[in-house]
């Protein structure tokens, strides 16, 4: 069985995690650009970060036979300073042609402010103009429902955003239906405390079906673990699903969404599944 990790911040993880992921049959992982745990002090710090994501991490992952892909953007937690965001957005195109960059992400909202929405819209425009995939961060905890609705309304009103090419991440029971009903992909993140548990992810798969649904561990420097993705694999098998059904969710589905970017090399076992 092969597994694809659609969202993980390997910059915050040790090489031992690459080894664990490889031993758990992860063949590819994707790293969206995000907050470092502190606000960066200049646009150049973002330039260094994007260089790291497009050079060092693919080489480190390759030692464990894992393909590493990246998404580039100014993240929502550092989008309140619109002037800084515009400085960063100005050099993002330098990185978009890198062989492992899949698109713009993880853009989105954090506290649902007007400035965050402005920076979100600027980057959506960049993605649409260049025909790129978009990976979206939805806010945490109490702000999630409102932020998800704001971004859905924004993208629907845009008129030129193809929902097939956009994934909203960190969805939970109260947002996953809204996202998919609007035609977008949804991703569910499994964290030890916040976000989803492995069992709740499998509950959602059972209730809403596996179409346009991804699962990730979103491991970073906080309470998180790459193995939570594999705990969901185990939960699905424990409930009696066969390997074909499991691989359709954890391998084919990421291939179907991410494979819309020709740079993404893994191919689904069956086109159009599940």
């Amino acid at each position: 069985m092969r597994i694809i990790e659609p969202h993980i911040h390997m910059i915050a993880r040790t090489t031992a995690d690459y080894e664990r992921m490889a031993l758990m049959h992860t063949v590819a992982c994707c790293e969206p650009a995000f907050w470092a745990g502190y606000d960066r002090t200049s646009a150049l710090a973002f330039h260094d970060y994007f260089t790291h994501l497009t050079t060092f991490e693919p080489a480190r992952a390759a030692q464990y036979l894992i393909q590493h892909y990246a998404w580039i953007c100014i993240n929502p937690k550092e989008a309140e300073d619109v002037a800084l965001a515009k400085e960063v957005i100005a050099f993002i195109p330098e990185f978009l042609d890198a062989p492992t960059v899949l698109g713009i992400g993880e853009i989105g909202l954090n506290k649902n402010t007007r400035n965050e929405l402005t920076v979100f819209e600027l980057q959506v425009e960049m993605a649409v103009a260049r025909g790129l995939l978009i990976w979206i961060h939805t806010p945490h905890l109490n702000d999630k429902l409102k932020g998800t609705r704001l971004m859905l309304d924004c993208l629907k009103a845009h008129g030129r955003v193809n929902p097939d090419r956009v994934c909203f991440d960190h969805a939970e029971e109260h947002t996953v239906g809204l996202i998919r009903d609007a035609g977008f992909w949804a991703a569910m993140t499994i964290y030890p405390i916040t976000k989803n548990s492995p069992a709740r992810v499998v509950d959602t798969l059972e209730q809403l079906g596996p179409e346009r649904l991804l699962v990730d561990a979103s491991g970073d420097w906080g309470p998180s673990d790459p193995a939570t993705l594999h705990q969901a694999v185990f939960e699905m098998r424990r409930r009696g699903y066969d390997d074909d059904q499991v691989e359709a969710v954890f391998y084919d589905n990421p291939c179907l969404f991410l494979g819309q970017c020709p740079k993404f090399k893994p191919r689904p076992r069956r086109r159009g599944t599940p």
Binding site: N142, D143, K144, L145, K146, E172, H174
Partner: peptide, 13 residues
């Protein structure tokens, strides 16, 4: 039904 969804909606702003 839908306890998890209603639980999260109640905690949403």
């Amino acid at each position: 039904p839908d306890r998890a969804r209603r639980f999260l909606e109640r905690l949403s702003e």
